[in-house]
Design a protein around this nucleic acid. Sequence first.
DNA 1: CATTGTGCAA
DNA 2: CACCTTGCACAATG
Length: 884
Amino acid sequence: MIGRCHDFRFCVFHGRHRGGGGFDEDEDAYLVPSDWEDDDDDEDWNAGGTSGRRARDLQKNLTASRGAKGAAASSSGKGKTASKQQQKQQQRAGAANTDDDDDDDEDGNDSMLMNLKDCRDMQLKPQHTDRPIWVLPDGHIYLEASSPYYHQAYDFLVAIAEPVSRPEFVHEYKLTPYSLYAAVAVSIDTDSIVKVLNRLSKTPVPDSVETFIRACTVSYGKAKLVLKHNKHYIESPFPEVLRELLKNPTVSQARLGEEEEEEVAPPPKTGGTNKTAAAGGAAASGAGSAATAAAAAAGGARGGGGGARGGAAGDGFTLTDAPQEMDVNLEYKELAREGDGDDADPDVMMGTQPGGALKNVAFRVKNSEVEHVKKAANDMEYPLMEEYDFRNDTLNPPLKIDLKANTRIRAYQEKSLSKMFGNGRARSGIIVLPCGAGKTLTGVTAASTIKKSCLVLCTSGVSVLQWKYQFQLWTDIAEKDISCFTSDIKEAINEEAGVLITTYSMISFAGQRSEIAKKIIDTITKREWGFMLLDEVHVVPARMFRKVLSVCNAHCKLGLTATLVREDDLISDLNFLIGPKLYEANWMDLTQSGYLANVQCVEAWCPMTAEFYSEYLKPGVTARQKQLLYIMNPNKFRTCEYLVRTHMERNDKVIIFGDNVFSLKKFATILQIPFIYGATPESERSRILGTFRVNPLVNCIGLSKVGDTSIDIPEANVIIQISSHFGSRRQEAQRLGRILRPKSNVDGGFNAFFYTLVSTDTSEMYYSSKRQQYLVDQGYTFKVVTDLANASDRSQSKLPDRKSELRVLQETLMAKTDQEEKDEKKMLDRDMDDIGEGSARGTVMRRKGNLGALSGADGSRYMEYDSRPPPKKHPLFKSRYVKM
DNA sequence: CATTGTGCAA
DNA sequence: CACCTTGCACAATG
């Protein structure tokens, strides 16, 4: 039996005993008062008439109904109910600068305003004041956070809808096909969704929404992607579904006969590398060869374009029956049983199926095409389920790993894992937890539940070490069973089963590999991984990093991240690359529970000084120079200075973040504080961090974007941002995450501070509001202060007068990029070579050149350069050069 | 083993 | 409405 401390796994087992239903996902979990009348007359929805394809059109209609922006927004001024006014106010409060500009409610933010128009004629139901949510015809849902039934409704809504924005009083959610897939994936059936939604809603659920829900959920779970002997199969008890999928060219082209080799065949190195031959090895190989034989026949048939195998696979399509031998796995029986018991759904797909005897049919797809197939299937609204029945997997050797007896996991971690293991199997997906909320422990717990070979992917070498450390901290895994693989650590993998921790770039690296690396990569790609853990999963959609998913084969994938956002549009790719978002913690809930520090966010407005602003406005000033000017704005510096001084007096630990290295250096130098950036060697870094941690006299350090990731400073409780990477919401959230570690002085008030210094009337204002969006959606509010620069006493400042300001301005205008400096150096070296003798490389010549360059005769310098063949074709340099 | 170069991500 | 620098990982070099 399981130790009573492992509540989570306790739950998993019980979940299974209860017949595969999610253990806290059934309708009963969303209890509402029984005297609420159920006014949903489950009208019979005719599945036959509506195929899943309709969902997309419905979605279009839904969005179209949102209508023209401006008119709706202005006409919505007198929303009918008090709570809608409240919503609006709240929404506006979320945006930092609402006073003068009404137009800056952008993107998703305006939906609430528009929707007010749409629901004028909605009828309120009895007990509507008790019911916590509004369901609008466009699929948006609003939840009153003050409702006594908030928690029930919250649990339900996060399961079926995407959180859009969760400020203090009213939360906005949105129904999307993906969110509904995820809901069905965690075992909430369609009728329950509609029923509970209706019960919670103040107004009857609009027909459009119900239709949308049904259309989205009807085809979910009909087809499945499974991994067998390192080959991928699309499998379904419904031949019709497979036929449908095969109509898609992407899918049909990805199809592969059982015995066919993929073109990208690995080097012929078959000599016993496949180590699946464990305890059940004999049985496995027997089944394997039988399967191959059976499929070979099928493949032949397909080649001939002729006879269908199996009665169900007619219609000109030749389906490869799943060989009987493959059905030995319980997984299949359970699938069949589920389909059998699926009472509420007399599915059109099953029309020809003999009720009790569901047999799975399957066809193989190329491993290299899995990504595209999944995307295509998603687009067709037959999202492929990926579930791993790890308890009944006898093919892959088990891994000896258990949580230590004293390991405890928190309620929300357990909850997130319950979404993953809800029906006793492991489903692929993404868990979103804020920084410092224990993502690693969540991942480790998942790995020790599955107990199969586990591949962990991280973004950097240091986090590889951290993961290994955490595995050893929380579990009893043997030293021989866990290994790291980075450019400088190459540990041997356990042949049987083990945990391997590596980086994305290690796997996706395209260039020449060292011999030892080649060997390890080979074993990684050959192995059938039980579990793949993707740390910082928001990086995975990147062109190179997503390759890891086609290179490594895993039964189940779990992505972890704190910030599921990107500034490009690739984030939604994760839906088919990994799976649905299984759980997203609410930052404010965790703050209230004391798991996170209570952060006061402040945006400090710093007016530009006259000289800096006139430079800023000059025509022909490059974007980079403009950026430098608003960062180096003396009022910003003095604001920073003032904040540092103030927090020093409180004995706080302050981090100054600067994305731009030049300005960071300048600030740090003038303030006389240590700073770390990319070029700071490791020894120096740990020395500075060490003193910052322990020395009460060193309470302030500067960090470049090295601090955004991979530097952990639990002691810090104040952040001052002096410069940032444009509108990166991820950076903003990640920086805030640095001070989220709960602080000891919890007295209900703010115990951490997050300042962003913004030069007014510059593009920095725009970026700043963009950056804050993610945090605003998590419920943070930004307080705007305007007078800090003047509040500071000039005489105490290191930049007290106009003369010193002008000096800074001068330096700012002369600031060179690293690239420019390198080029200068190169050019100098070249000049030296031209002059001839190496001995002339003396100080005199070098100095002269340097001074000349610094004096700013840029144009001529580059012109001269032009007459020579370009020494290097760095694209960045090229464009700059062309400009001049 | 410290540095350098390349390529990538954001 | 895009902005383009900075940091990192990896392998190869002297």
